[in-house]
Design a binder for these strands. Structure first.
Lengths: 381, 381
DNA sequence: CAAATCGCTG
DNA sequence: CAGCGATTTG
């Protein structure tokens, strides 16, 4: 059985608001590590991946893995009955066909209880490649929202181009053409677009421990493996959290691994630092590495050591751009606008890109993350 | 070519917001003195006239007069892509078919550039009579907004009546009738409704020169016709501007003169000071009067001398009422509500009225003005 | 100046 | 029911 208690129902409400227009039905996969959800959007163009770490809950218990088939429209309605600051407990018996939600006002003078019907949903558990990317842009989520919103007024699609000049978002429309150029915020010493030749960037996981650890390892010379070391600067996430670790990663990795991506992970060599990260996982066995990650500090450390200067600086406000190669991709603005609704969950967003592969838009909040994958338009420039 | 830089894109945004629902396409007429726009509303019931003085720009250059045919809906979209405090530069080559807009964040780490298509628009350059009015009401723009909004909830039209009692806005509706009476704010010496028998008021021009001149003629005794003379007090505008002159004025005046309103002007007697102003103009001999107007200075002078005392006082907060004759006119509230959107541009609004002639609603802001003309409903009371 | 909420229109 | 716009609050 599952029993999970969230301190703030608002977290769940925002999460549902962020994806309910993209997906109507989906399985919430629950296991001891937390809850994940993966689904293609209704038109099968985009993929959304959500993670809620067990550690992010005030209380979490899940005896055995179980999928909860939920109609997101129904869940949205039920969640609207909760106040943002209510404590929210969700429960499901092992073979239950209903999900029980209890909302308790912090003052505890009000308790509301709802039972929502569950449904059987074919779980098209898609494997998500653990791709490495040629460019990563980290910026305030509100700025991303603003840009895609602005450009969506003009045209249907946007060309995102990362070069040493910065990152450019350009859209052509009937009435007007528009282009927004963001330069790396020059905060600290490393104030410019990082351009490392061959290293590959992996997505920064704030929440994901693995990644973090890895980074930390990488960054630090004293990495356990002892491999670390190029000291390339990769950016780890400076996501909002910093401390929370995710368990899911394993899953993701597994999947990605399945994809054969794991190898790549190892390939981190390109990014020496990352390799460290991967190792951990592998080493996880080890787990120590994870700890490191877990220690939110890891992120920061990484930053501090590597690019952190800039990170910290850009940290909460600026734009950070990292690239190994020039990338230029075109995407549907409609989807990006949709993705950008997640800005309410997190103040920063990461865009991970490589030519001809799907864009990854990642919002990492304290208790997990929400990630969107969107294939580029072909014939894009 | 045109190149003009505004310190705050917000100014342009507000201006477009104020007129975009009234007009869909219009020519921005650019010349060395600034930018003007004149257009009838889509249903040809109201006329809107906008002025942006060259001196109000951070940088302004226009080698030769050029009309920029703009679809206001498109321009609104493009302007939405600017933040209110961005610096905004608009550029157009001499025979260009696109208008280039560049927005620069004050922090300068973001530069957005847009190219908007221009179109050829039949310039129905309407002559705007440089009418003299029997009553002028100057009040906080927010108050005007509130009044027409309130009354629009009750009925379709409003009767505006200026008498020695003050100015009354009254509307009759199915469910209720409403009436709002504003009395002159008793600020300075001239704290009450000015009631001059026959003198006519011209709109206070901050920017329009022409208008000013015309009035002058009437007021002064030495009017060419020899008719003038009553020495009526007319109010010039205390608008924000003061220096920039418009070329258009010529046109405007011509028409107003045609109206035969001049005679009334002469009645200024009540406010001796004003007469002085008028004289200048008139002295110019007959037509000279027009010239005088052109000199924007005329405006300010007029004010200072005549009723200015009161103007200054009520100046920023109160209601100022000036009248030469009792006026009572009925207007469509729908339009007035629309006009009142300009309140975001300026804290004061002027209403200029004479029986049976179009109402002039004028918002004068630092860098120009926006004026609306609306014909009264016939059969009005 | 920006964000969130409510209302209105499609 | 969803999206867009307007208004209000922070």
């Amino acid at each position: 059985m599952l029993e999970a208690k969230l301190s703030e129902a608002g977290t769940l409400k925002k999460l549902l608001d962020a994806i309910k227009e993209l997906v109507t039905d989906a399985n919430f996969e629950c296991n001891e590590e937390g809850i994940t959800l993966q689904a293609m959007d209704n038109s099968h163009v985009a993929l959304v991946s959500v993670l809620l770490e067990a550690t992010g809950f005030k209380r979490y218990r899940c005896d055995r893995p179980m999928p909860l088939g939920v109609n997101l429209t129904s869940l949205t309605k039920v969640l609207k009955c909760a106040k943002d600051d209510d404590e929210c407990t969700i429960k499901a018996a092992d073979e239950a066909d209903v999900l029980n939600l209890v909302y308790e006002a912090k003052s505890s003078d009000r308790i509301a209880e709802y039972d929502m019907k569950l449904m059987d949903i074919d779980s098209d558990t898609l494997g998500i490649p653990d791709t490495e990317y040629d460019a990563r842009v980290t910026m305030p989520s509100a700025e991303f929202t603003r840009i895609v919103r602005d450009l969506s007024l003009l045209g249907e699609s946007v060309r995102i181009e990362v070069s040493k000049e910065g990152v450019r978002f350009a859209s052509d429309g009937e009435a007007a053409n528009g282009s927004v150029l963001l330069r790396q915020s020059d905060s600290s010493s490393i104030g410019k677009v990082t351009q490392s030749k061959s290293k590959t960037l992996k997505k920064e996981d704030g929440a994901d421990d693995e990644v973090v650890d890895v980074d930390a390892d990488d960054d630090e010379e004293e990495a356990p493996d002892g491999k670390k070391i190029k000291k390339e600067k990769k950016v780890k996430k400076e996501g909002a959290d910093g401390d929370v670790d995710m368990d899911d990663d394993e899953e993701f990795k597994a999947r990605s691994d399945d994809e054969g991506e794991d190898e790549q992970d190892e390939n981190e060599d390109e990014e020496g630092s990352e390799s460290g990260k991967k190792r951990k996982k592998s080493s996880s066995s080890s787990k120590p590495s994870k700890k490191a990650k877990t220690a939110s500090s890891s992120k920061r450390k990484g930053k501090g050591k590597k690019t952190d200067d800039s990170d910290d600086e850009d940290g909460e406000a600026g734009v950070r751009i990292e690239m190994n190669a020039h990338v230029s991709l075109t995407f549907s603005l409609k989807y990006l606008v949709n993705f950008s609704k997640s800005a309410s969950l997190c103040s920063r967003v990461q865009l991970m890109m490589s030519n001809d592969v799907p864009l990854l838009v990642s919002y990492d909040f304290g208790q997990g993350h929400i990630r969107y994958y969107l294939a580029p338009k072909i014939g894009d420039d």
